[in-house]
Design a protein around this nucleic acid. Sequence first.
DNA 1: ACGGAGGCTGAGAGGAACCTGAAGCCCCCT
DNA 2: AGGGGGCTTCAGGTTCCTCTCAGCCTCCGT
Lengths: 222, 222
Amino acid sequence: MRLLIVEDEKRLALSLARGLTAEGYAVDVVHDGLEGLHRASEGVHDLVILDIMLPGLNGYRVCAALRAAGHDVPILMLTAKDGEYDEAEGLDTGADDYLTKPFSYVVLVARVKALLRRRGQGGGGSPVHVHGDLKVDTAARRVFLGESEIALTAKEFSVLEQLVLRPGEVVSKSEILEHVWDFAYDGDPNIVEVYVSTLRRKLRPGLIRTVRGAGYRLETAP
Amino acid sequence: MRLLIVEDEKRLALSLARGLTAEGYAVDVVHDGLEGLHRASEGVHDLVILDIMLPGLNGYRVCAALRAAGHDVPILMLTAKDGEYDEAEGLDTGADDYLTKPFSYVVLVARVKALLRRRGQGGGGSPVHVHGDLKVDTAARRVFLGESEIALTAKEFSVLEQLVLRPGEVVSKSEILEHVWDFAYDGDPNIVEVYVSTLRRKLRPGLIRTVRGAGYRLETAP
DNA sequence: ACGGAGGCTGAGAGGAACCTGAAGCCCCCT
DNA sequence: AGGGGGCTTCAGGTTCCTCTCAGCCTCCGT
């Protein structure tokens, strides 16, 4: 399952790419409209995530051009919140779904999966992540450590989810911030530390390892 | 089981597609009459949901053309409430059923299933969901807890149905709202809480678990 | 050993999310 | 008309999250 992201905000593009890669998709990223059109025209992608505001060629035009050329790849539009761009116009040009910035990572993944499922191709990956004696069920939003269930709050769960999605890898605080909170969050970044702290207490000290200056990592086998 | 939706209101089309996908159908969507006719003519769909008011070619003409070409795929017409279009005319041109906007999701799904069943192809999955000592018969719209039958109102049943369809998973309030109430519902979302409250009283406290910040979950067996 | 940056964590204010009883409305049945 | 049941809104009360803050700790370079 291969996705194309056309997004000129580098940080956002990178975040999305990382997250979706962790979900098990192959991800290509380009930063301007014209190149997006070229890559999408290759026909190798199963879904295109397309920002509206793009240098070169805006999202509507890319979308319209693709449809005009007969490509029916599912397109998920990303629109800015300010209402200058209209969701209806996006759908008119042939997009299959749209998402208004800022959006949360969870919502994005859900939409991507829904679109792929709609194409009858099955939406990638089990929703249950097992990692040592830690089991995280994203559909039921439940967490088990060994035999016992651990009660987590919504935010706690989301933070843990980010780590579980990329077991063994270092996940930076800013990535967690962007994925769990809105991409536009501007509060105290220390909030991530607070949640990691309570997760350690509720789960097990040592399960979440701090990598100084880089982020956190879910510890692999003991 | 594959459905085709021909509907030019993008938001509605999107909602329908999402909902029906969740019901386990493969769904294709097109936004104008002519393309609807083309796609439906391919003969790969098991049912067509066809809006009347369409750009290009209106629903009656699409329907009539399909029948004239010998296609007997079930057709469910969507008509506007304002009476300008006549249900009788729709049925005359060969539609199998019609639905007046605005309609609720439950009704739509019921009609879709009924039409598919009428074609002798079975309406997708067992209509009886057993879950611990809870038994929900979606065809008969009856609910049993242990030996005794529980009397539920229409809305109560529909809300419970949403939870039973995905046992153990978290179902968000907005999902319940979209599926049980009209797609265009804009009342107090708290209505879902009210129904969950009465369901708990009628069924059993603890059967429906609140997952704060996420939704509700039908508790799996103890 | 020392200082500083980065990281940890307990406490508490504030508020979001949720629950539920009560009451109005509307439709249908009698 | 009247009554009843179901649907919806509303508001008060409760629970318990979320986020901030401040002080302390840890690591690392000098």
